[in-house]
Write a protein that binds this DNA or RNA. Structure first.
Length: 115
DNA sequence: TACCTGACGCCTG
DNA sequence: CCAGGCGCCAGGT
């Protein structure tokens, strides 16, 4: 589809299961497009209402201070593994989402996206 | 067309 | 671990 880069980002973000997360770089790799900065830019656009933006974090599991408080609240309700001693950053070793091959194929660029 | 921004990521010292 | 530098590339103006 002609969906914009940002739309693909938001679409993938919406597919991240509760309690799990992806880094900005992970998102770019899965989409096979752009890079972490571009993903960040897309996230900054806000995305659709209800979008679980807190499931996309820095590669070290952290988020900017302005977003951290709200994100941590979500992690508590979702049971996302966090490193409390490290400033409540997500424990990416445990929380990183590994999409199934079918999912990867669905989000790659060029994917027809029949659904 | 050129220039600027951006919720990043990796390397170097 | 901390700081500084630079690459990355999709929009918007």
């Amino acid at each position: 589809m002609d969906s914009s880069f940002a739309e693909r980002v938001h679409d993938l973000v919406a597919a991240i299961p509760p309690g799990q997360a992806l880094s900005y770089g992970d998102v770019a790799e899965i989409l096979e497009a752009g890079g972490p900065r571009q993903v960040a830019k897309a996230m900054a656009q806000g995305g659709p209402p209800g979008n679980p933006w807190w499931r996309v974090v820095r590669v070290d599991g952290s988020l900017p201070p302005r977003l951290a408080a709200a994100a941590v609240a979500e992690y508590r309700v979702e049971g996302t593994p966090v490193l409390v001693a490290q400033g409540s950053r997500i424990d990416m070793r445990r929380a990183r989402w590994t999409p199934a091959d079918a999912v990867l194929d669905h989000y790659r660029r060029g994917s027809s996206g029949d659904g």
